[in-house]
Design a binder for these strands. Structure first.
Lengths: 252, 252
DNA sequence: CGCCGGTTTGACCCGCGTCAAGTTGGGTGG
DNA sequence: CCACCCAACTTGACGCGGGTCAAACCGGCG
């Protein structure tokens, strides 16, 4: 288990890019440090200059910023396998904060190490670059949602996105997944208030679209939720098709 | 003027990264094709598979998507010097459209050429990667705005951002710049309606913050506009300081 | 058993959307 | 040089989605 972080990393890059054995070999030799972080703690804070980036091995994390009046906007959620601050490789000073949503296990790699790996193995560099581009594609999707979709649609979209991303790492078999996010956190990501998120979720529950028991989320009617959220997983750009569009439509 | 595109490209990369003479040399040798595009025409459409990317030499362009009900969300505006679809280098299928806002002059470079340049000159690869990361940083900024700021703040923020980016390429000396965007386009970028944008702009004019004569935009009170829009140019990550924070405050 | 973070509910309000009707000004053709 | 057109901009009246405020409620934990 000493190479846990490296293996998570390789699995992820295999999902989006085309690595060969030498690339994987080189990745396996990356020096990493593993750390556990408590829920709610900032891993990196806005304005900080960083010298390393990290792979999320276990748990949930998010990135966020505050407005002048103290409102929080969550910019991204991260699930195991993600490399949440890869951008720091080139943009050393953080323009937002990065925190553990739940207790998380994180693998750290120095920028130096990543950088020399990129020089030695252009394939890996390409894969990492692509990874940051997918990050950007998700941002674009959120911009469209925040700008032009209703609260209900946005909520549906986020639930679909998380289901899909969790599924891609084997954490959401048949539309059931652990979603350890408070409604407050969902609201701050969706540009809504807790009250509204609560009402939307109840509405979904009432309509038989999903069930939620504590942090266990069950999507009962995937195709309808997809329609409401205008969700098309293409923007996540998985090379391997995580085949979710093809799911037998349950609903009316 | 045969190397117009290349020189625009070099000037841009010099603005954000640290190139040496060999890098510039190699960039100058990039084979490019120049094309003029009429206002309103799609340069690349959603779903299209592309084999080249482009540098905006002159004019304004934007990227956008439509929702199911046909509402448009503009994801980004681009000014001369930008490389609007650099992400296509790794994500070949467009997940959004890219259009000319005004008549524009554009230089095209094949992905192949860019890719071999990246292999040969890691410095350039790094600069281009950084360029895509700045694109992402701008997205994050817009997410925070769309999610948590008022229409008024968002509008102010966008005007500041455009002023800053135009200034960085010498197109907005002393807070005056050509802004050939209709209020409809502004609205679609800001997640608002034309009516609201119109009222916000009039309010700004009334408060003496700006003047607008046709497409000529004059920011009369930079510091106040910056405050209203919660604008901090750091996220644009210019290496060279385009020194705009330091502008003598005009206003109350 | 009582605290506490998270959730739920209700009443009320406001920013912004919607609809609809002008107005303005540059471009075009007669 | 005028008449007309059309896209962009304005203005007003009205309504709704979602925010705000405030008060429970619920379940896990010390």
């Amino acid at each position: 288990m000493a190479d846990e972080a490296q293996r998570v990393l390789i699995r992820r890059l295999d999902l989006v890019a085309n690595l060969n054995d030498d690339d994987r070999e080189a990745l396996l030799r990356l020096p990493t440090t593993i750390k556990e972080v408590e829920a709610g703690v900032d891993i990196v804070s806005e304005g900080e200059r960083v010298k390393q980036c990290c792979v999320l091995i276990d748990g949930f994390t998010h990135r966020y910023r505050h407005t002048f009046e103290g409102k929080r906007q969550i910019i991204a959620f991260h699930v195991p396998g993600d490399i949440p601050d890869l951008h720091s490789l080139h943009i050393n000073v953080m323009d937002h904060s990065f925190a553990a949503t739940t207790r998380s296990k994180i693998g750290f790699v120095s920028h130096e190490a990543v950088w020399s790996l990129c020089i030695a193995r252009p394939n890996v560099a390409a894969a990492l670059w692509l990874e940051t581009l997918i990050d950007g594609a998700i941002f674009r999707e959120w911009i469209v949602g925040l700008g032009r979709l209703s609260g209900k649609s946005r909520t549906a979209h986020l639930l679909c996105e998380l289901a899909m991303r969790l599924r891609s790492v084997g954490m959401a078999p048949d539309h059931v997944y652990r979603l350890p996010l408070t409604q407050h956190e969902l609201a701050d990501a969706l540009g809504l208030t807790v009250v509204t998120v609560n009402r939307v979720l109840q509405e979904f529950k009432l309509e038989g679209l999903l069930d939620r028991d504590r942090s266990r989320m069950t999507i009962k009617n995937w195709s309808t939720l997809v329609r409401i959220g205008e969700f098309d997983p293409d923007y996540l750009h998985f090379r391997v098709d995580v085949d979710m569009k093809a799911t037998p439509p349950t609903g009316h």
